[in-house]
Simulated scan of single mutants.
Amino acid sequence: MNVTIVDYKSGNISSVINSFKEVAQNKVKIEVTSDLSKIKSTDKVVLPGQGSFKSCVDALQSINGLVDCLNDFVMNKKKPLLGICVGLQMFADVGYEESETKGLGWIPGKVTKIDNQDGKYKLPHIGWNQINLVKESKIFKDIKDKSHMYFVHSYEFVPIDKNSISATTDYSSKHVCAVEKNNIYGTQFHPEKSDKLGLQIIKNFIDL
């Protein structure tokens, strides 16, 4: 089986690559590429994202045919894809970081700035926080409710369909930290920085 991490030059993804390779232990081929033919033929895709919503969307679009390739992979072939951090946020229709930017539109909704309640809460929301599991999700197998994961973000994904939410976290308000819709999975937190539990989530995705 092949798992492909999409490298579209959106910041440092070395910890994502290292974590997937650690979990795969040569039993699963982990490839890091933006080559469309390799993405088309792979079994699973990981879409990381660091930086702003706009910079990540722009970087995806700068590689000719990549957005169409990912759309086909997810919407037509219905193969599993995991979005991490801004990788999850780009599932939305639109994001409002830097400027209004169109997202991939896989899970209807928007990405808006976390309400810091007039400075009461520091942004970015950074560090360990507990997650509240709101529905059974394949990527949370053997993960207990109220487990702690590692976050770094100032913006949150607000999906229209609440059934796509698989976990929330509390910071200023209750916001979405994981989604699952058919073959589409996403985490706002960084599993690759979330110690053993994060590696378990990566394993769950590889094992799907």
Rank of each mutant, 00 (worst) to 15 (best):
S55T: 11
C56P: 01
C56N: 01
V57N: 03
L60V: 06
L60H: 00
I63K: 04
N64M: 11
V67S: 04
D72V: 03
D72S: 14
M75H: 06
N76R: 15
N76G: 01
K77H: 08
K77A: 05
K78P: 08
L81T: 07
L81F: 02
L82I: 01
G83R: 03
G83F: 01
C85H: 09
G87W: 03
L88D: 00
L88Q: 03
M90K: 07
F91M: 14
A92H: 09
A92K: 02
E100W: 01
K102F: 09
L104S: 04
G105H: 10
W106I: 04
I107M: 09
P108W: 04
G109M: 04
T112L: 14
T112G: 08
N116S: 14
Q117W: 02
G119I: 00
Y121L: 11
P124Y: 09
N129M: 08
L133C: 04
E136D: 13
I139S: 10
K141I: 09
I143E: 02
S147Q: 15
H148E: 08
F151E: 00
H153C: 06
Y155H: 12
Y155N: 06
E156R: 06
F157W: 09
F157G: 09
D161S: 10
N163F: 10
T168A: 03
D170I: 13
D170T: 12
S173L: 15
V176M: 10
A178Q: 06
A178W: 02
